[in-house]
Design a protein around this nucleic acid. Structure first.
Lengths: 189, 189, 189, 189
DNA sequence: GATGAATGAGATTTCATTCAT
DNA sequence: CATGAATGAAATCTCATTCAT
């Protein structure tokens, strides 16, 4: 069995994803983790801390992967496609974490929120530079500002949370491929 | 000055959009509306009722408009483009309502949630049939299932809530045009 | 259709009997009576007034009948028996009123409570004098103070509320006869 | 000083007996017990739980005692007499609990009410079998159904609540003896 | 390291009553 | 006569957090 903090994070992730941060009582989290409230406050300063922890971890993983993919060698269209697929696949593979990330952004207290926004913006910008790179060399149409394109695409990703079921017909890879295809298609000159 | 129920709806819309349903106290709503809690419970059965009211009104407007546009005379590409622009423009013109709609869907109590899901599904399906129509006659590529295309597009729309500011540089029409263009471009055969 | 005050009394009697005074909202009463709250406060000063009205009417009827029976001509044993049967039969024939009377005594506000206690005490005393009369002439055993006997008997009567069903097997007259028989039997010298 | 839950039960018993369940605010209970509302809800799930606890404890004691007395060796008349005295004496010795028990039965929420009714019915039936035993062997008259006799008698017991004062002239034993005598007398063949 | 009792502020909701129309 | 909107006080219950052990 995992350590107490790990069990707490797992329980909180599950519950936040299912019901949303504000609908989950600390008591529920510790019950599901099989510990007491005292234990939770021993490891985490607050309920908000738990959210912060969950919130950050997926984003950090995705940022790392995006940077690798973006820095790769292939043509820009391939790299953007790969990046698009990747963000969907990793989101679906960690769907509970992703749901928390998608929905609970502004539940963080002020200081942590600022930090998170920074990380999120950096991710967005790295992705945007891929689009801009393709627009600059004529691979992609420049009609739509790259910023908008990225917002549009990540809207699709975040929205997975409201219709996709990991055990439904479509695999993560299939959805990833379709969405990446749509993105690339929308950028054809 | 408007009637009490109208003032309550306006206050609730404002606050739910700003802080999210769970973070708004009934006391705040009635304070902003300038009435007492008793008055609120005279007109609305619960805080949830207020949400239901707000939630439904934008969706009903958009459904009506979608049906008109979809039933129009022009070529399918034009009708889809117009529908896409329209949903964004009306969402931005009623941005507070839209934010509530985008974010507070699952805060509704069970019975109302079922009803709302039905309405939302009908909207989604009407939109999907537009895509299918174009795919059937070869105007649009059939590579991606229409269902996915619609989810993808509405992800973009819902996501407006996390980056768009009505008094920023871009007008509602501009964003609407860009997003509709992206949608149409992504469907080119 | 009856007058508004009559309908209100009828509705209140029904509901107070069913759920108890404190569990009935004024709104429920006026709904059942088919009028509005304003109408109720037009005819009755308060919810308490309604109770007072119901409370008093059965007691007044029973007091009148007791006085007649007690003042009758027959032997004391017959008169006591008749009085005992009568209180049960009239209670069951007006079971809702009786339930309210049995259970809601101390829900009356102070001034009305004092008045009611007086009426109830007079009833109790008239009944007690019947017992004393029989004890004085040797018809009844004098072992138990008449006061206790009367309390004991009326306990049985009040308790009807917790087990008797007007449409069950036993008629009001049968229960009345059995209880009166028990009372008389318990007083045999 | 007793534990917090004990103090809460004591305070609730006192207040429910005095004013009736619906007239007592949780705030009053915790004030009298010298704790906060949070503490109360730490130990009891609801105000109803408190009632349930009080309600059950006297009944359990009386059931145990009734079973012992009923299973005793003496003649049936003696055992019934002893049982009758006992229920009165224990009710008066725990008068607050008894008052709550007598008056607040139907204030329990549905599930607990069913449970309580079961316990109460078992008690009633054990008592009834004593009467039936005496009727079967001719010790008691069989004129009145045992069921009615028991209802009648327990009416007297419950009614104590509306006239008896523990510090009045009559001791619990005296009332018990008188009532038991009346019961036995009423059953003479 | 961990417990769980206790806090205290605040949440939603109910309801008898009043009053302008 | 009667309405029904509005009040305001109070009700029950929740919950993140603290702290002595």
């Amino acid at each position: 069995m995992r350590t107490v903090p790990e069990r707490l994070i797992a329980a909180a992730t599950r519950l936040f994803a299912e019901k949303g941060y504000d609908r989950v009582a600390v008591q529920e989290i510790v019950d599901l983790a099989g510990v007491t409230k005292g234990a939770m406050y021993h490891y985490f300063g607050s309920k908000d801390d738990l959210l912060h922890e969950i919130y950050g971890s997926l984003l950090r993983v995705q940022t790392t992967r995006l940077e690798e993919i973006a820095a790769g060698a292939g043509p820009i269209a391939e790299r953007l496609h790969a990046a698009a697929v990747d963000v969907i696949v990793t989101s679906v593979r960690n769907f509970d974490q992703a749901k928390v990330y998608f929905r609970s952004a502004d539940h963080l207290a002020d200081d942590k929120r600022a930090e998170m926004r920074g990380e999120r913006r950096r991710y967005h910008e790295r992705f945007r530079r891929l689009v801009e790179e393709g627009q600059a060399d004529g691979t992609f149409a420049g009609t739509t500002p790259a910023d908008l394109v990225v917002h549009f695409f990540f809207g699709g990703v975040h929205h997975l949370d409201s219709w996709y079921h990991p055990d439904g017909e479509l695999t993560a890879e299939q959805v990833g491929a379709h969405y990446a295809d749509l993105l690339l298609a929308s950028l054809r000159p």
